[in-house]
Nucleic acid binder design. Structure first.
Lengths: 247, 247
DNA sequence: AAGTGGTCTAGACCACCCT
DNA sequence: GGGTGGTCTAGACCACTTT
């Protein structure tokens, strides 16, 4: 186990791999201290900065933890913790090998309903852009999306832009603020008749309910709505611990 | 905007904050190049290594992206992407200000049912530890957990250890292998009569279904089961983009 | 006092990109 | 060829922990 300085793999990465193998094979067990940075530096013929880079990579991956003045220790794997990632719909479907498409069901200006006005911090009845879309995977409906968006600019709504563009881009086009962050809440729900019809399933079927609020950089909400994902075709898979913070 | 070297806040962090403010206030907009590392180094009186540390922090947070030979650019925020974290039950409830507890409903050795045997890669009928638990928040059932665990050591099952210990520790106690990683899948489902009774809700209510497989370091599965979370009391909130990879 | 990790510097060489 | 980010070094000082 030593560093090959002629390799294309940089030394900091080689050392990280060596230590990772040693941890996973039980040379160092949870709670054990790793050799000090000075020792690793001497043993592998690397500068301390380089050793530290290896260690910080392992720390980001959750394998080790450093304690000031004390040392570096192997972490206990966090098995009761799960991280789920919901990617943008097209990417998500593409990674499952499905071809995705979007069907626009409705897009018009409406007076904001009470709840939408509240969420968008607008006076009730303000004109907002209301959009209903079907998100399809291999031609079959996978999700049903309904959103209320601020509509400051008075630009005409072009049907084709709604079919293909992601929501953040639609907000940019039709509202003055450009969205900077979003808050999402994931719940479960039973589909009512309208929702079930849109998703081609029976009323009362279970589904994921993803509530989304788009927020501008000045903190103002610029979009709000929900997206329903069919419970029989959609699931979330946990991200492996080691990949949670970069590999 | 300059670096205060007498501050307790280290220079690399001060520079990261300066650049973050400039990005969020629109000085640099998505797609724009940041000044080169050499320029930042000169402007703020820091070595290039320190400047790079600031930049790599912003890159981990997703605010910027570096391109070899070209420069560093402001990223477009990924608003259609969400990250959800399900922490260990006690921690999760504690962070919501609820006091959690666990009630053991059943714990006995049973011949592994076909599906459990398959998931645990054991011959059908092998004796496994079957556990049913209620996870309570402020005394009300929040989740209903059923697990099959390998049982290699023949140790007696102590009731009190099942009430309070997390599953990984139970596996360690009763199986030969110590679990090293877990895979989880999150789905939605409708509760049957037994499940509804355990959760104090009506049959047919929607719920989160979290399937969990515990895997030993040698790759062998050591535990499998599901945990049902009440749909009316449980929800997942997205992690802010900037905190997804360290703050 | 000795050992540890945390931070910083002023150089260096490299591969990559553009002109 | 000149600019860019990616990597590495051999020192240095600091705060913290343990002896």
């Amino acid at each position: 186990m030593s560093i090959d300085k002629s390799s294309f793999v940089p030394p900091y990465y080689q050392l990280a791999q060596i230590l990772e193998r040693q941890i996973k094979s039980g040379v160092y067990r949870p709670g054990d201290p790793l050799p000090s940075e000075a020792e690793l530096s001497e043993k592998y013929g690397l500068s301390r900065m380089t050793v530290r880079r290896s260690l910080s990579q392992l720390a980001r991956a959750g394998l080790i933890r450093t304690e000031k003045g004390k040392g570096t220790f192997v972490s206990r794997p966090q098995l009761d913790r799960a991280v789920f990632v919901m990617d943008e719909f097209h990417k998500e479907m593409a990674s499952r090998g499905l071809t995705s498409s979007v069907r626009l069901l409705e897009a018009r200006l409406v007076p904001a309903p009470e709840k939408a006005a509240k969420k968008l911090q607008l006076p009730p009845g303000t004109k907002v852009l209301y959009i209903r879309r079907s998100l399809l995977a291999d031609g079959e409906p996978m999700a049903y999306d309904r959103k209320y968006l601020r509509y400051d600019r008075g630009r005409p709504i072009l049907e084709n832009e709604l079919q293909y563009q992601a929501l953040p881009e639609m907000v940019e086009k039709h509202a003055e603020a450009l969205p900077a962050s979003s808050k999402m809440v994931l719940q479960v729900t039973l589909l009512n008749e309208e929702e079930a019809r849109a998703l081609h399933v029976a009323p009362g079927s279970p589904a994921f309910l993803l509530e989304q609020i788009l927020v501008a950089s000045d903190g103002r909400p610029v979009g709000w709505g929900w997206c329903l994902y069919r419970g029989d075709r959609y699931q979330l898979t946990s991200v492996p611990e080691a990949l949670q913070n970069l590999g």
